[in-house]
Structure formats: C-alpha cells, structure tokens
C-alpha cells in the first residue's frame, strides 16, 4: 500500500493520482486509467488526455532496464548528444524508442538539477556522471 498523501480534491488531484498509480504499476494501462476516471468521477477521455500530454507518464510497459541521458543545457554543452549517440550504438537501440530491444531502452530526459555531474546519465533511476565520448 502506498502511504496516504494529502491529495488536493478532484479534479485537481488527477495528476497526483496518476503519479501514484504509475509508481505502483510501472506504467498507466487502459485499465488503470479507466479505474482512475471512475474513482475521481472524471470523464475517461479527460484522464487519457492528461496522461498522454505529459512525457513523464508512460502508457506502455517500460523495458526492464532504462537508460536516460540528460539533455539539459549544461549536459548538452558537455556532449550529451554525442553520449546519446554512442550509447544508442552500444545498446543497439534507438533513442527515445520506449520499446528499446525489449531489455534496454534509451531516452532523453530534461534537466535533473544535477548539472555539477554533467553530462548526466541515469541508469535505472540512478543519476551518475558519464564521460562524453
């Protein structure tokens, strides 16, 4: 069970609830979205519209492992683009293809606020400094 959090009242709490469900299930399936809509008494189309609008919500199951490359300004200046290309070649996946090779996927992420580590690479949720190729 997720800890009780003081959510704002619906419909304002929709995004919070979506975050919570994604944390529980890894992604937001149609079934999950339908349940959220029913729970918050919101139109299903509206819930889907919000969930699909934000990049942080995943509507398809993620690969078991995920590699993120920060494309924030500091990271870009320190070679994030080249790093992403090298990493794509190494893993044999396309950048920002959520399906990846079934095991790994490679995505770009926005600034993580860890600019001191630039260029930042996120391995399964753990940010770390990477060497630009």
């Amino acid at each position: 069970m997720a800890p009780e959090t003081p959510f704002p009242q619906p419909p304002g709490r929709l995004i919070e609830v979506l975050h919570q469900r994604q944390q529980q299930h890894g992604h937001l399936s149609r079934t999950t979205l339908a349940m959220v809509a029913q729970e918050l008494r919101l139109p299903p189309a509206h819930v889907y519209g919000v969930a699909s609008f934000y990049h942080l919500f995943r509507l398809t199951p993620p690969t078991p492992h995920r590699c993120g490359i920060c494309f924030g300004t500091a990271c870009l200046l320190r070679g994030a683009a080249a790093l992403a290309a090298a990493q794509a070649q190494r893993l044999g996946v396309r950048l920002d293809d959520p399906a990846g090779d079934g095991l790994w996927s490679l995505e770009t992420v926005s600034c993580l606020g860890a600019c001191g580590l630039a260029p930042v690479l996120v391995m399964d949720g753990v940010p770390r400094r990477a060497e630009a190729p």
């Binding site: 139109p43 299903p44 189309a45 509206h46 889907y48 519209g49 699909s52 609008f53």
Partner: peptide
Amino acid sequence: HVWAMANR
C-alpha cells in the same frame, strides 16, 4: 464528455 485531445 466523449471527446478529448490526446498527446501534445
């Protein structure tokens, strides 16, 4: 409430 806009 049948319709909505999806994606961006």
